[in-house]
Design a protein around this nucleic acid. Structure first.
Lengths: 209, 209
DNA sequence: GTCTATACCAGGATAGAC
DNA sequence: GTCTATCCTGGTATAGAC
């Protein structure tokens, strides 16, 4: 791996542990195995290292949405997605658990989550990314999904957005609670399962039981 | 107000804006209207100022639970609380809105929320306080409340804890989203209302409609 | 209990040799 | 592209006069 890339990766780890201000360029350089002065041949400033992290995470997340088959942009055509058409409640349960565990254990996502929380009030860019990905996009996606499922007669009729928030908010809370404790992810999964069971119990249409 | 108290208050404001590392003792002193050196007659270190903030918030929150009539400790006797016995779903809606707005606008709570998010990975104490108050205690409280309401026949039978998380998690998500935007609190309230309406629609027992 | 002056150090960044 | 040496700034904290 190029030295430049290694600097970005090590900085990501350190910023996620101790925050931007809590990490010195010397520490980053040490982690890479060079002197701090050498680092300035690759980046012009500490801020520029941070910016490269933002770019790295953006890139990583773009790749993810391809892999997971989950649309990232809100203007994406929901009806066109195969994903939606065939998804029933059991699949919902299954895929939620997988996405949850993924978010909890993926090294980029979990570090991004930590940095976003620490730097949200100092850095508009990371704050915006966090809100878009983990709040706005996630809720929009679930809303569209549930609206489709209501149309398809899988889900009880209702306010799709409110239902989506009811479904997603517990996942968000669990991510907040366990983002830094992936060792306790079994506890988190147990709670998640009972949440989804409760959701299915309440929202599944009678004729699908 | 004593100078010592004023230092704590100004530091609370500044730490909530720019974080612990992002705030210098000079800035705190300026906000108070004294020189930074004078500050050391009241506190022996910057860390000690931070500790006084933790104490201040703890005190404030203790006072709150008296005012709001909401038990803070999990070992408190739930059945004994008058609050529980007479609460029906309309009251739930009403009190949730009030507590939500309070959390969003109370200067101590909102600043505590911000500091807790920024310093959670550097400071075990504030991290623990945040989790206890906004996660564990809140959920325990709601769980006991809903269990009582199920017994009383107000709420549909079910997994009280899962129902509690379904109810509380959207509030938590909204607090996260709007903690620093109390100007947009009307937007937040609107979403909150539709969440509670959806909750009531689903969980209210038929004979109570 | 407030001030001025100052010690001390760490962090970000640059210069220039190799 | 890495190193050593160095600069500069700003932050925490202390000393001592008033």
């Amino acid at each position: 791996m190029s030295t430049k890339k290694r600097i970005t990766e090590e900085a990501l780890t350190l910023f996620a542990q101790k925050g931007y201000k809590g990490t010195s360029v010397k520490q980053i350089a040490e982690a890479v195995g060079i002197k701090d002065a050498s680092l300035y041949k690759h980046f012009r400033s500490k801020q520029e290292i941070f910016d490269s992290i933002v770019a790295l995470i953006n890139e990583h997340i773009s790749n993810l949405s391809d892999t997971l088959g989950i649309p990232q942009k809100e203007n994406q055509n929901v009806e066109a997605s195969i994903f939606y058409k065939k998804l029933d409640l059991d699949e919902l349960k299954d895929i939620s658990g997988k996405v949850f565990i993924f978010y909890l254990t993926d090294p980029y996502i979990s570090k991004f989550w930590r940095i976003a929380h620490m730097e949200q009030y100092q850095n508009d860019q990371i704050y915006g990314m966090f809100r878009q990905i983990f709040m706005d996009d996630a809720i929009t996606y679930q809303t569209d999904l549930f609206a489709e499922m209501m149309k398809a007669g899988i889900l009880r009729e209702g306010n799709a957005r409110a239902v989506a928030i009811s479904f997603y908010a517990p996942i968000f809370l669990l991510l907040t609670k366990y983002a830094d404790h992936s060792d306790k992810k079994d506890d988190a999964l147990e709670i998640l399962d009972s949440q989804i069971e409760e959701f299915v119990r309440v929202y599944r249409k009678a004729d699908h039981e």
